[in-house]
Amino acid sequence: MKNSKTNHSIAMTVLKGRTFIVLVVLLIFFSFAAPNFLSENTFMLIAKHVALYGILAIGMTYVIITGGIDLSVGAVVGFTGMIAGGLIQEGLTLQIFGVTLYFSVPWIVLIVIVCGALIGWLNGIIITRFNVAPFIATLGMMYVARGFAMLRSNGATYSDITGKPALGNTGFDFFGSSIFGKIPVGVIILVVIALITAAILKETPFGWHVLSIGGNERAAKLSGVKVNRVKIIVYILSGVCAAIVGIITTSQLVAAHPATGESWEMNAIAAAVLGGTSMAGGVGTIGGTIVGAFVIGVINDGMVMCGVSEFWQMVIKGLVIVLAVIIDQFQRNLQAKIALQARNENK
């Protein structure tokens, strides 16, 4: 009895840290498989890529914890990127006054983030007020946002969006290419957002409310949690995260392409799920999601460096995700078993 209990708790520790273990194993594996893998440059590259899905995945984690899903984030990345690119390149033409306004970069960032928030707010309103399933509401929003991204330039790319000193809108490339010490700005933004959102989830009443809705929505309502308001805020957060990614990725590329971000929502969902977020809601942590995002980043870049074909990359990524969820189920069963055992011993 005693023995099986210790066995269980060892197994539990292993299972709980599974994503982290997978990450370490992957790092060891690729450092042998790809000769240049174990270097600072590689890590900075991976971190730069991870910053993108990581930030999306943070918003997604909040949404999934409430029991929802946000499929629109990839399209919002493209749409907000196009807004940023357009504002720099063409400005905002007000035909009634016959003027074209050019904004400085901080204003552009603010406008783009507000756009992301508005899209998230719309998602939230459609889901809570009109009772549309989150999957459908955000699927619709995905098409709408992607469509507007294309319409903005008729499908063309805004290239070389560095701005002109004469217009006072230079410096947009700051978010993509600047480096503090050795750390890219995107990574710093990821860390800041992760710290803030993790603190909100753990340390504020709002965080409790998010968890409560996913755990038992009816009970949350009966307890006096303002369920609809919390849900709307969560979708706004997801939209804002997508807008921030839109800014970073456009800045990294120094170009805004309307197809940017296609299927990134899937990477975000995968990172959240790998990090232990339950699709049924109620369970998830920001820390786990970040580890999940790194697993995906290491697989992506590691395989590229090993020369694995893009097609095999997809197969392997898919297998890793499904395997992670199978292990997750395994962990839940074990947890239930341990709880039952503890309960019987208490009696």
Binding site: G207, L211, G214, G215
Partner: peptide, 29 residues
């Protein structure tokens, strides 16, 4: 309630104080 209306995913004090949280400075739990 007749049917339990608790949050199985949260701990005991979170369940008890849900929507009646005690905070430091209105923000931090």
């Amino acid at each position: 309630h007749q049917e339990l209306s608790l949050f199985p995913n949260l701990n005991v004090y979170q369940n008890i104080f849900m929507a009646r949280e005690k905070t430091k400075g209105h923000f931090q739990l």
